[in-house]
């Protein structure tokens, strides 16, 4: 990183990070999404770099362009633009279009990575473990999730912010390069496997039908493969949403119809539930 005459002070960086950490989505709207969160996180940096009020306003207006990404991993983009703004304040030839080009170019890919890694993998794994710890109503699992998730989120975001500031674009390379892709695939493997475990542990569907020759249908199904019904219904829901492009709400309504029909014909019944409990 170049040795500039004007450097962003540590205090301004810390404040900028805090503003993003807290305020990235507090004023969300469909039209501007995280734009205002971005503005307030750039504000301390810009005030630190520019002395004149009109310079501050002009610099800040750069960041009024639309912005939306995954807020955790996306912290890196804020860090990168802080570095760019610092370079600009020191007279480097960086204009609004350069900064916004980089922002717009990064927010899509990082949103994709963040959604699949954080919301799609990390949080479900933590919640899966936490639900196990909370079985029977113990608060332990909830406390586990609160502590672990918040430590990971805070320090992870801090790391991403300063990494972006120190390394600029090179920081993002590390997230999209071949070894990062391999690591992401590995983490997704953990997520997919754990979600299988979550499905088997926490989805319990059983049938009340009795077979003509004595015995229950549930007993026969258990003999084929335990938890066969949860598996079938999960794959069915996936098929409706992924292959038939149905929304989760429509899928839930279809399940409601199935539940009603099943209750009418005796496939689902209170007896099942009593026997499970």
């Amino acid at each position: 990183m170049a040795d500039y005459a004007k450097k962003v002070s540590k205090k301004a960086l810390a404040k900028s990070f805090r503003n993003w950490y807290y305020g990235n989505l507090t004023c969300f709207s469909q039209e501007h999404m995280q734009t205002f969160g971005y503005l307030v996180s750039m504000l301390p940096v810009i005030e630190d770099l520019y002395d004149k009020k009109e310079d501050q306003t002009r610099a800040l207006q750069t960041y009024s362009a639309f912005f939306n990404t995954e807020p955790q991993i996306g912290t890196m983009i804020v860090g990168v633009t802080v570095g760019l703004e610092e370079a600009r304040a020191n007279g480097e030839a960086i204009d609004d279009d350069t900064i916004n080009g980089i922002r717009a170019g990064l927010m899509g890919p990082l949103a994709g990575i963040g959604d699949s890694l954080i919301v799609g993998t990390l949080i479900p794994i933590l919640l899966g473990i936490a639900m196990g710890l909370s079985e029977g109503g113990s608060p332990l699992g909830a406390i586990f999730y609160i502590v672990v998730w918040n430590l990971l989120a805070y320090f992870g975001m801090r790391f991403a912010y300063y990494r972006g500031y120190d390394l600029g674009g090179a920081a993002v390379e590390a997230l999209v390069g071949p070894s990062a892709t391999a690591l992401r695939e590995a983490i997704t493997t953990v997520g997919t496997m754990v979600i299988g475990g979550v499905a088997a542990t926490w989805v319990s569907i059983s049938t009340a039908l009795t077979l003509p020759g004595g015995g229950t249908l549930q007993g026969t199904l258990d003999g084929i493969y335990p938890k066969l019904l949860p598996l079938i219904f999960t794959v069915f829901c996936w098929w409706l949403m992924a292959k038939k492009k149905m929304s989760p709400i429509i899928t839930m309504l279809i399940l409601l119809v199935i539940a009603f029909l099943g209750a009418c014909c005796g496939f689902f019944g209170a007896a099942t539930i009593a026997s499970v409990a």
Binding site: G191, I195, P230, W238, M241, L255, I258, A259, F268
Partner: peptide, 24 residues
């Protein structure tokens, strides 16, 4: 009530399936 209990036991499948849609 039977419908309520049945749909309550079926709904978690949607949550799992949303996740599967993403990882598969």
């Amino acid at each position: 009530m039977k419908t309520l209990f049945a749909v309550g036991s079926l709904l978690p499948c949607v949550g799992i399936a949303i996740l599967l849609k993403q990882v598969i």
